[in-house]
């Protein structure tokens, strides 16, 4: 069973008061819970949020499934998101994500065997002038080459 930490719970309760409507707190609450559940939202997480927020599970679940930044399945410790959209593609994004996958011995969307990485391709991250680029966690890495991308990835613990 998943339970929010006392601090997490406090944060969720604060979000409920922050906006003009309680339902508006669902998106921020999902972020808070995701951070406390190894980076993904399980059915248990939805149950817990529903209890704490006093909102129906269905309301929270449908929001969770609509947005791409909530992971619905366990992911590696580091989520490597390579932008695949046009400006990045024109600058070699496809070759880059293939290179990263082959170097890590994995496929898109699949955790590496050691559980450290999941590589996915995502749509335009608003960094098209510094293509190709990737996001890992909250951070953007721009103007990548195959070498620089792998150096960044290998330096992550």
């Amino acid at each position: 069973m998943f339970q929010l930490s006392p601090q997490g719970k406090e944060k969720v309760l604060a979000e409920l008061k922050r906006y003009e409507s309680r339902q508006s707190a669902v998106l921020p609450a999902l972020y808070i819970a995701q951070a406390e559940n190894k980076g993904y939202i399980s059915p248990e997480v939805i149950k817990e949020l529903s209890r704490v927020m006093e909102l129906p599970e269905a309301n929270i679940n449908e929001v969770c499934t609509f947005y791409t930044m909530y992971n619905k399945e366990p992911i590696g410790n580091h989520h490597v998101q390579v932008c695949r959209t046009l400006s990045c593609m024109l600058n070699g994004a496809k070759e880059l994500s293939e290179h990263i996958c082959s170097q890590l011995g994995t496929h898109l969307g699949q955790k590496t065997k050691d559980g450290k990485f999941t590589v996915t391709e995502v749509e335009c991250l608003g960094s098209c002038g510094t293509a190709p680029m990737m996001q890992i966690g909250d951070k953007y890495y721009e103007n990548l080459t195959h070498e620089s991308a792998m150096n960044i990835i290998r330096s992550l613990k």
Partner: peptide
């Protein structure tokens, strides 16, 4: 105040954005 989206291009459309700000699907 600031509101953080959660990854959906359609939330850039103004009424999609309003749905999202209301805590719903965008």
């Amino acid at each position: 105040d600031v509101y953080r989206g959660a990854g959906a291009y359609i939330c850039g459309e103004e009424t999609g954005m309003i749905s999202s700000l209301e805590g719903l699907k965008g």
